[in-house]
Design a protein around this nucleic acid. Structure first.
Lengths: 181, 181
DNA sequence: GTCTATAGGCGGATAGAC
DNA sequence: GTCTATCCGCCTATAGAC
């Protein structure tokens, strides 16, 4: 039953930051929910920003790994399809999805955070790997959008009575179609 | 040269909220930039939230007008194409685009704001007008994404050396293609 | 309409005991 | 590792003069 306190802080912080926003969530709230005092948090993390950094690290590492793979692979349509599938694979992991949501929703508040800038750059580099060098503007937009389409499925969940399976399958179909000529 | 102070507050607040985030922006900053004291702001707006409400009103009204138009129109593919074009038209107006950006980037911080909930619902209703009742899940996702595609162009601006004209044209092409069977 | 002054609270962060 | 106690600054908001 005894869990690493550090991990529990990350867990609670991630949830609250995502639900309420980073600035709107105080260390007091996190501590209260954990059942300790604010001061205890400072044993595990030097600052509030440090908690964010530890959360972002996870995703930055995965994104950079993905980018490295893309760059070292032949620039073919098949590679781009596989990049899409690998990205979708990551999004399926609950923990990773939560972090992604948190970062999506708090872009502005975290704009000066070093990890965030790095993530944005990596994400941009990733979208540019989705198009061949000679692509038209339309192709470029379409291929980049394919990546974001995978996120979109999550926002549109409320819509109708689709199951998660249906949505994720449909979303991938749409994304793949955005890659077609 | 004398401009309505109320309007200038909205203008400055909108910019700072968008750049730094809602929570991260204090009334002191807004007042300083305007060249008055905090207290003066309270003559024009009852609370900080009131400033947000006044900003959101603008967009909520336009979205609801759009929804009303869609609902009172025949449910044809042509209508959906026109809805897309009308939406794109709105996004072209600088003032409207700024408000949209602000709301996009501060969703979490403003999640309890009445206008924001209403906006989210309207936006969702709008996406559901994009699909016929008998649409498959894939069509539903694809058509909804068409609407968001128009936003995406703005995020991907940094990419390459495309002009604003090229991006907006390419984005619309991609969006229209998402509506095709 | 705008000011000065101030109330009252909560924020992040630290010192030092246990 | 966690606590109590505390610092200090900034925040929103209000009262009341001009």
């Amino acid at each position: 039953m005894r869990e690493d306190t550090r991990a529990r802080i990350q867990e609670i912080a991630l949830r609250l930051f995502t639900e309420q926003g980073y600035e709107a969530t105080s260390l007091r709230e996190i501590a209260e929910e954990l059942g300790v005092t604010k001061a205890a948090l400072y044993y595990h993390f030097k600052t509030k920003d440090d908690i964010v950094a530890s959360l972002a690290d996870l995703r930055v590492a995965e994104l950079e790994e993905l980018l490295q793979w893309a760059r070292s692979s032949p620039k073919t349509p098949e590679m781009r399809r596989e990049l899409l599938e690998r990205y979708a694979e990551r999004l399926k992991q609950a923990r990773y999805l939560e972090v992604t949501r948190f970062l999506e929703r708090n872009q502005t508040a975290l704009r000066d955070h070093p990890n965030i800038s790095r993530m944005r750059e990596t994400m941009l580099a990733l979208t540019s790997e989705m198009s061949p060098p000679d692509a038209t503007p339309t192709e470029r937009i379409s291929h980049s959008l394919a990546l974001f389409a995978l996120h979109a499925g999550k926002w549109l969940t409320q819509q109708g009575d689709l199951t998660e399976e249906e949505i994720s399958k449909a979303t991938m179909e749409v994304a793949l179609r955005l890659l077609e000529p």
